[in-house]
Amino acid sequence: MKRLLVVDDALFMRRLIGGVARDAGWEVVGEAGDGSEAVALYPELKPDLVTMDLVMPNMGGLEALRLIRELDPEAKVVVITAVDQKQSVLDAIRLGALDFVVKPFDRARVTALLRKVAVTP
C-alpha cells in the first residue's frame, strides 16, 4: 500500500485529500499543518508521496519542498496551488516537484493523479 503525507493548513483540504487517497487505496501516514511540520515528519515517515499546499503559515510549501528534496533527492512531492500562483508553480517545478494540481479540483482529479504517481519511475 502506498503511503501519503498530506500537508495543508486547512483541515478541510487535508480531510478531502486524505479521504480521496484512502478511497484510492492509499494509506495516509501523516498530516502536517505547515511546512516546518512537514519537514520534521518527512524523514520519520518516509512516505511514497507528499501533497504540499503552497501558501501556509510559518513555513510555506516552496521552502518545505526545497528542504524535503535536500533531505531526500528522490522525494516525490505534488504541489497544490491556486491558478494565480503561476510563478510559484514554476519555482516548484524547478525545485523538483513531481506534479501540481490547481485548486479548486474535484475528487477525480486527485484520484487520477495518485494513479499516475503510483507508476511514475
Binding site: V83, K86, V89, L90, A97, L98, F100, V102
Partner: peptide, 14 residues
Amino acid sequence: LQLVDMKARLVAER
C-alpha cells in the same frame, strides 16, 4: 486544462 503551459514545462523538466 488550467496552467497548461506549466504542465508542459513540468513534462520538459521531468
